[in-house]
Amino acid sequence: MQELAVPLNHVLLVSSLLFCIGMLGLMMRRNIIFILMSLEVMLNASALAFIAAGAHWGQPDGQIMFMLILSVAAAEVAVGLGLVLQVQRRFKTLDMDNANRMRG
């Protein structure tokens, strides 16, 4: 394949925009499901930065870091959604402000 004209900083720009949108969602939402979705968006944005950096040098390392991020996201979502079920059962709401003490 011949050299593409997409500049590296545009890919990183998209990645940082996605990261900031995810961080905004993380800070402004109180529903724990939306907080988990925002975490997914942020992880995905960092994965995009890794892939872009790997593709810039033509090395596979970026894609390997992407796979590690993928397994972190999968483990985090499994535990997080288990916690969602616990919060819903215990407080009858998904508002995280009700779950701000160490003991329910």
């Binding site: 590296l8 900083n9 990261f19 593709a55 040098w57 033509g58």
Partner: peptide, 18 residues
Amino acid sequence: ELLYLMSTITGPASIGVV
């Protein structure tokens, strides 16, 4: 801050399929 730092980076995003 991120955009300011990113704007200094140059080069193509990809030099071929991995």
